[in-house]
Design a protein around this nucleic acid. Sequence first.
RNA 1: GGGUAGGUACCGAAACGGUUAAACGGAGCAGACUGUAAAUCUGCCGGCGAUGCCUUUGGAGGUUCGAAUCCUCCCCUGCCCA
Length: 397
Amino acid sequence: MERQLRIIQKNTVEILPEKELIKKLESSLKEKKPLRVKYGIDPTGAEIHLGHTVPIRKLKDFQNLGHKIIFLVGDFTATIGDPTGRNETRPILSQKQIEGNLLGYQEQIGKILDLKKTEFRHNSEWLAKLKLEELLRLASNFTIARILERDDFFLRYKSGKPIFMQEFLYPLMQGYDSVILNSDIEVGATEQKFNLLAGRTLQEALGKEPQVIITMPILEGTDGIRKMSKSFHNYIGINEKPEEIYGKLMSIPDSLMEKYFHLLTELSEIEISEFLKIPLLAKKRLAHSIVKSYYGKERAERAEKHFETIFQKRKVPEEMPVLKLKKSDFKEGKIWIIKLLSLSELVTSHSDARRLILQKTVSLNGEIITNPDLEIEPKEEAILKVGKRRFIKIKVK
RNA sequence: GGGUAGGUACCGAAACGGUUAAACGGAGCAGACUGUAAAUCUGCCGGCGAUGCCUUUGGAGGUUCGAAUCCUCCCCUGCCCA
């Protein structure tokens, strides 16, 4: 019991109310009945990133302690868009987009949780059938003033930004999920606090035992300022290539290292404080450790080597994508450098290619190209480099 | 429904008849530097085989030699009144 509590408390921001958690743990132990721990995700993006893994790792703790994880995919609510953490309305996703995003979720989550012991549910199962009458009954448990208490609503309201009715209903629906799922505990990031509490309100109103809520810290993204999110382009997806994950982790501000260690690795206090004495080493350990947890030791080592080769030694990596050129790509045996760059997808447009050439960042076999009108004679194999981290091997058929 | 203020590039935000692909900030990209893809400094940041051409300031029309800027209608948002 004491041990369970200590594990659960680690890294959390708040447990509300803690007394109820203790009570629930006690009766769970006595009756040998696992607690139902809910976690919901908005399938708006197909990728799980390290920010999501913070609460998911907490679920792992619960799973290890023998409790039941209920992983809720908010497919229905995603069609509405949770306003959390955004100061604007989220685009409404189509059912098709959501279905597309669902694919691959389990696979990614399986890297952390034991899927066999995890119950996956979709909230369209009950929300799609909810009658207006029932919705009204649920809505009568909240007042506008209370919903408006929510930080992001309040800020938006104050600054004159639109809030739509369906957004107002979001916490309600999330709370209703808890009613249906009979959750004992719901885990979420701190920004979810209001929604999590709505679950308590509704469970109580409908004569059920209210869930305990556990909030987890929000992980800042690679910019070190804003929370990790796809829309801020500061995220590290767990499905990204090991080299990418490693590199992105190396780019986080030093000040964030300690937090990342605590929230994303298994390393102990002592180990962490020891590592932090030497910043570069610490960051490499961090990157290595995280890559390893998703891809294994071998890939982590390869990613580390890749980083050292490119950024520390400034050399060309061993492996890189290959572009095969066909005869039809050539004109009189030659190919225009800008066309080549465009075919390689190392640039976003011809103008982009031209700019990069003029900035002297494009090289072919180590030779810097300065003339954007250059026509290249085909060789059998060549290495095209843009900037210091974009490479492609060119092969002529 | 009435009144009023607005809608500018990825985001925020100037310009309010012409020297404007549109100030400035952030994001992004590149370079220098560095233990680092950090910090800092510098350059770039609509498209096009390009000293020129094409498409852009919610949408559709119109006025004008010339429109993000003026007019008409429509769409969207804030606030106030009902």
